[in-house]
Nucleic acid binder design. Sequence first.
DNA 1: TAGCTATTTAAAAATATTTTTAAATAGCTA
DNA 2: TAGCTATTTAAAAATATTTTTAAATAGCTA
Lengths: 91, 91
Amino acid sequence: MGLANTFKVLSDPLRRNILVCLKEGKLTAGEIADKFNITPAALSYHLKLLKNADLIMEYKLKNYIYYELNTSVFDELIIWINQFGGENNEK
Amino acid sequence: MGLANTFKVLSDPLRRNILVCLKEGKLTAGEIADKFNITPAALSYHLKLLKNADLIMEYKLKNYIYYELNTSVFDELIIWINQFGGENNEK
DNA sequence: TAGCTATTTAAAAATATTTTTAAATAGCTA
DNA sequence: TAGCTATTTAAAAATATTTTTAAATAGCTA
């Protein structure tokens, strides 16, 4: 959904922390909810936003839903940021 | 005010566009308001957020207030993003 | 199949952000 | 000084986001 959406989704600390957790590997929705002490419904809302922004991917297995990181969107973000200097900025 | 604040401030498209404008050089509050067709009061609110996030700096001259870009905060942002791959990601 | 578990969805309530409007400030210029 | 211009501040209104609660779904397991 584009850069605007990426920025919006990353503006929430909980959502950023979910991504950091997923660096270690895939997790089920329930496992994530436990880590953050948030209700399943609230978590589900955040996971949906992350998924819409293509920051995570999901797949179903047994009656769990697994989530995993999708880092490809970060490239676009880096490009945006680099317009303000990039490489080795003036220090 | 830290990374969390940087992300929050950058989540708004208008604020990002203000930064892009300021790449060309300093502008007064009024000049920025003109470019974006926004009321001075609303703009002032956004400029305050950008300033709190250290993304812009201001100085007064005559009875204008000039704003200019401060890119130093982007470094921290890049570091955060790079934890998810960085350099040349797996393509 | 019956009931359980994991998770989502929907609607309402709670909360946070943004805009608007009006008034205040501060430094010009005549 | 008087009045003008540029801009901010404050409060309220408008809007958007997040959480809560309850119900729905879907795939297990006995």
